Simulated assay, not measured.
Amino acid sequence: MASRSVFGAPCWVSLTTRDLSAAEKFYTAVLGWDWRSGKLGDQYRFASVGGVPVAGVSAVEAMGQKAFAWTPFFAVSDADETVARGQERGGTTAVGPISFPPGRAALLADRDGAVFGVWEGELVADWEEWRRAAPVFVELHTRDAFDAAIFYAEVLGWASEAEGSCEVHYENEKVVLRSGADTVAHIHSGAVDSARDPAIRPRWQIHFAVADVEACVQAARAHGGSLVKEAGDVGEAVLSDSDGARFVVNSRSAQ
């Protein structure tokens, strides 16, 4: 269980992929992860750093998705209530809630189509250990940051009186989500709904902190991935794995 109450914060990240074996090799090379199976069977693999589970990878059929993508999961107290609130506020439900012992999960999309997950139950890893083992935050680029923040606040209980609820701030022209002292999410305005390029449609993007961004770029290219975008002045690169799933690596000093 988490060492302190975590409510509404990202608590897990999961990848859907076509080839589990290829994904393991790619992310081992790029991010240095180790792998194991768990209670969810052979179609779901757990990545770990120093023995701490940090991410999951599933075959596409295992989560009912067709797209290859990274998805953040947010901790909630009741998955059924969360799904109902999402639907009441114009969101949609793709999967669930379904049982994944020791908890229950669901995949949803917000009003603009950005996909996210919710998790009810015991966390896969201690939340603070998870964040130390593979520092991560999530970022939403969407049509209207304020509208999105209201949707997620109502659905996930941000800025509520619940113990451990996340705080919401507006800083440097973006919405900033904090759980305690940790910055765990950003929401930016500006994604274009009608754009053909999925990279600029509303979507959640996963950022991993790494020691050497350039080494990650080279490893990705050597293992079937590609560099989508690089911003050298801030130590950041957007990468794509061999299935086209995008993620971001940031230098640890840039966090």
Rank of each mutant, 00 (worst) to 15 (best):
R203K: 14
A222V: 05
R201N: 09
V192G: 06
A222S: 13
T183R: 11
F151Y: 11
V217N: 01
I206V: 15
W130I: 02
V217L: 09
F137A: 06
A220L: 01
E88Y: 02
R36N: 10
K25D: 12
I200D: 09
E139A: 02
L140Q: 00
V213F: 00
F100E: 12
V175E: 08
D34G: 13
Q87L: 15
Q43D: 14
E81F: 00
E129Y: 07
V115I: 13
F208S: 00
G117S: 12
E214Y: 12
K39T: 12
H207K: 00
V30G: 05
A191D: 03
H169C: 03
L156E: 09
Q255P: 03
P53L: 04
L227P: 04
N172H: 14
A254T: 07
A9T: 06
D233L: 11
V54L: 08
S3L: 04
D80T: 03
S160R: 05
R36G: 03
V83P: 01
G38A: 10
H141M: 10
D126G: 06
G32C: 00
Q255R: 10
W204P: 00
S99E: 15
S242N: 13
A2I: 06
L40R: 08
E128S: 12
V49G: 00
L20C: 11
L156C: 03
W130D: 03
V60D: 13
R143T: 12
G232Q: 10
A231P: 04
W158K: 01
A237I: 02
V228S: 08
P102H: 07
Q218D: 14
F68Y: 15
F26Q: 07
A9N: 04
F73K: 00
A185R: 01
G86R: 03
G225K: 04
